[in-house]
Design a protein around this nucleic acid. Structure first.
Lengths: 144, 144
DNA sequence: ACTTTTACTTTCAAAACAAAAGTAATCAAT
DNA sequence: ATTGATTACTTTTGTTTTGAAAGTAAAAGT
């Protein structure tokens, strides 16, 4: 693990863990697109390089944001799943989305336009909904 | 301006603007420590290099997160001030702080321990308080 | 058996970052 | 008015990180 903390500040320490250009995008793909495998992540719109992806997944697992397992009946694919620690990043991603919707659009006109009114007015409900929908996609694995 | 957007996703576009290791820390210093000058920022606990600081301040100004001005009676120091766009990053910083307090502390034991209960239970009030306290530090400039 | 797929690793070039020193303008003291 | 200190940078020179491309090994499909 090549993780080092700059100082004792909670904000800078958090950025030392998730403050790169890719980690939150991988988590976004998990939460909103229900992506699970290395292949899934490597085909994102931003086309992350596979070496970067591998090193990010490794670090995320080491710090406990995601967990890795094999599916029963498939020894090839790894399934990456957000832990509670990783799921708890959703509020950050939501706030980033709202800020971007309001202030970055003017800089990047091709940005997709969605209606985020519900996120703004019912934030807790929205977050819980995304979380439950995500967890639901693992039901098939959990039935023993 | 060397800012490029990877794609049309609001999250990745936001990270293209503020997703480096320094920008949010500079904004943290403005919001919580009421730092205003180049010198102020260069003496942070994380000791940012001056060339990085200069390039970040330039980009932040170009994208409209901060504005720069001279104080009357001091031609030497520049005063950097958050715009509405920059102030609107506060909710993101708050969520990062809460996540870090709960989940990063175990990785970085020297992290400062504060009580964030009020932030959690009265988030809107807290955010508004930080914002007003920040704006108040510019009152002396605004009296004409 | 052969080809494809998945999950990586390796290699090497390019970009970003970091440390240090340097510069120019202002300001403060003599 | 001159000197020294301060502020806000820029420049230079490594070092680290990132990115593109190709390569590898195990598993799966045909």
């Amino acid at each position: 693990m090549d993780l080092k903390f700059r100082c004792k500040c909670p904000i800078s320490s958090a950025l030392d863990v998730i403050g790169d250009k890719w980690t939150l995008l991988i988590i976004r793909d998990m939460l909103f697109d229900h992506k699970k495998t290395f292949k899934d992540f490597s085909t994102s719109e931003e086309s992350i390089a596979t070496n970067i992806l591998a090193s990010r997944l490794k670090l995320m697992e080491e710090v406990g944001i995601i967990s890795k397992r094999k599916q029963e009946g498939n020894l090839k694919s790894n399934i990456y799943m957000l832990t509670e620690k990783g799921l708890a990043l959703l509020p950050i991603i939501a706030e980033i989305t709202l800020w971007s919707d309001e202030y970055v659009r003017e800089l990047n006109p091709i940005m997709v336009k969605e209606n985020y009114d519900f996120v703004r007015t019912n934030k807790q409900v929205f977050l819980e909904g995304i979380k439950q929908a995500y967890l639901k996609t693992f039901d098939s694995e959990n039935k023993s």
